[in-house]
Design a protein around this nucleic acid. Structure first.
Lengths: 365, 365
DNA sequence: CCACAAAATGTTATCGTTAACGATGATGGG
DNA sequence: CCCATCATCGTTAACGATAACATTTTGTGG
């Protein structure tokens, strides 16, 4: 009781004035002040000036809490991310920038699994907390773990728009902002092929991760397409071979070590993620193979560490900041009623190749 | 006008019920429901159960906007960071975790400089936006650029507590959570000295950055202390020499190249940041010196890339997650009225040494 | 100089919740 | 059996801003 009283905040003082105080000061009604401050055309220029001046003088700041109460718009957007994904801060930066430009702010919520018993309870809790704050919308970054969609159903029912980033949510009407990973896989293949590599390998990552699967698909498609063309042209045995290796991160070093030990070892390896590529570096080092000389290695994503590796890692860059901006734009279109379509909208950006030291023309041994 | 109407949200429906609906459903007053839901002891156990059940059934979710309006507590804490600092997401994670445990959520706001004309206008704008949202408190991560404190004065006047992280704000009553960088510098020196190095160098970074200055101070103090002791013991010319080089990041490669070119070059270099240490790597590579063999390199911070460098970088690790947690704790103590002291409180955690490959006993040439 | 539209301002009610206080019924001791 | 006491619940008003509607003022043409 006492503690509560102590902790209670003084709403009245706070150094800043409220509408009523400005109104009293100027001898006008609160409504006029409200209109004046929001730039309504209904108020005369002189009055507006007086109001603005008084607001400045009294250090008035609009109370978005009350405004939210009245208008139903809080100016807050929930951003829900698994902390394991947090290294991609540029995505959050992109979301932030677009939101701020529209007068909103992101509320962060990192979702952890709720222990072994309830692996998804945490995610539900996060959603509830965001919903309780009456956020205008939610950006959700799904992780590898499967997401139970009935949680999202509740968001939908409450009429709060939701956008998925990085990887789409299947069976949901949520909009999506991410990368065209099939194109990314194609770009990877084309880079290696154009360098002259004919014996390729791809480290596919976990097969159930949809983004990885897409990259693989694009890569394999491009190789197949190349073979079709090449066969026509040169009639023959110049066909590109492409070994596909499914493995999770932990097994990557061993797998790629085995891959690179064979006599007919590939001259270039495409790893579907930069982390995977780093593991290929390890394997190559153990076999005293020089990355970028004896074997080309190509990553995917362009994580900050990519440029710091030695040799620096060639990779397919995803512009996460742009993905974030797109996510925010999709969301704002919903929030501000510009997009009322039932169908989910989806924006995928095409990644770009960043050629660094780890890829070069094959060294015919 | 039309647009506005379209964009307006349906507060009533929303899939969820409000207090009144529960009250009507149960035939009790709204007040009883309010009390029951918040676990007030004034309501009987039976009634509480009925209320809780009804709330569950009607999918009631408390409206924190209105709650904030009434109680003056939004459950939101502003986190203001320069985007350049964003790579340290673990700090934000630490803040987040402690806040969530206390029923609050972080609102992120990245401050950019407002162009060349108004380098600090952006920061003021950020503060205003956070204040407008009526956040309960603000965590502020100052950057290298000097911060005009009169902005913070406004926060203070509004009675919103503010905590600085990473580097303290001079001339402010803001609480502070950071690292004991003087101790960190000492730890760095002791590590190198215990390995047997006697010719040291320190790359000091920009001298006006207080954290860098502290690290330097600790380092130099430890060396001096060592010399004092060593002089007593061995009477002599065994004295440790320590070259101090002030340089900003851009000049680091050239400076350390020059440093390592001399005949009496240091056997170990302490860089006051990991990024600086990475530049020493570059310089060493250019001189065909092997880091960790010919010259030891010690960094500071333990950025994620440190372990990925080859050889892996020994460094003085700052636990940013803990720093974040401390910041949130300091803030919550203010918000919840547990700390009403005028004086600023400050928590500095002692960093720890992470010995990896880049430091070893000197190789006497 | 009046009628009448347009511009400018004022009034009222309200959003969902809660603090403060008031009311009711039950319990129990004298 | 009555009144004090307590547990439980209800009523009222308010938080700050705003939509909707009502009202006053200004301007304009006849």
């Amino acid at each position: 009781m006492k503690l509560n009283t102590l902790a209670k905040r003084d709403r009245s003082g706070r150094g800043g004035a409220n509408l009523r105080q400005i109104a009293t000061e100027l001898g006008v009604s609160m409504m006029t002040v409200s209109r004046g401050l929001r730039g309504s055309p209904e108020v005369s220029a002189v009055t507006r000036e007086r109001i603005l001046a008084a607001a400045e003088r009294l250090k008035y700041r609009p109370n978005r809490v009350v405004s939210a109460f009245k208008t139903g718009r809080t100016g807050l957007v929930g951003v829900m991310v698994r902390p394991s994904k947090l290294y991609r801060c540029d995505l959050i930066e992109g979301i932030h920038d677009t939101l701020v430009a529209a007068g909103s702010l992101p509320v962060m919520h990192f979702s952890r699994t709720g222990g072994e018993a309830a692996p998804d309870a945490a995610e539900l809790g996060c959603l509830h907390r965001l919903l309780d704050q009456r956020v205008d919308g939610i950006v959700f970054w799904p992780s590898d773990e499967t997401v139970p969609n009935h949680y999202l159903e509740e968001v939908w029912k409450r009429g709060v728009p939701l956008v998925a980033v990085d990887r789409p949510l299947p069976h949901t009407r949520a909009d999506f902002s991410g990368t065209d990973d099939v194109a990314g896989g194609r770009i990877a293949a084309e880079h290696l092929l154009s360098l002259g590599h004919r014996r390729l390998a791809i480290l596919c990552g976990e097969p159930w991760v949809s983004t990885y699967a897409d990259r693989r698909q694009g890569f394999v498609e491009a190789v197949t397409a190349h073979n079709a063309t090449a066969a026509c042209e040169k009639a023959g045995d110049d066909a590109v071979v492409c070994e596909q290796i499914e493995c999770r991160n932990e097994a990557a070093i061993d797998e790629s070590r085995e891959l690179l030990s064979g006599r007919e070892r590939p001259t270039a390896v495409f790893a579907v993620s930069d982390v995977l590529a780093a593991h290929v570096y390890e394997a190559a080092a153990a076999l005293t193979l020089s990355v970028g000389v004896d074997v080309s290695v190509l990553g995917y994503a362009d994580i900050p560490e990519a440029g710091l590796l030695r040799p620096s890692l060639s990779t397919v860059r995803q512009d996460f900041q742009e993905i974030g901006r797109n996510a925010a734009r999709l969301l704002l279109d919903r929030i501000e009623g510009r997009n009322t379509a039932d169908r989910a909208r989806s924006i995928r950006i095409t990644p770009t190749l960043v050629a660094r030291q780890s890829t070069s023309a094959p060294n015919h041994h």
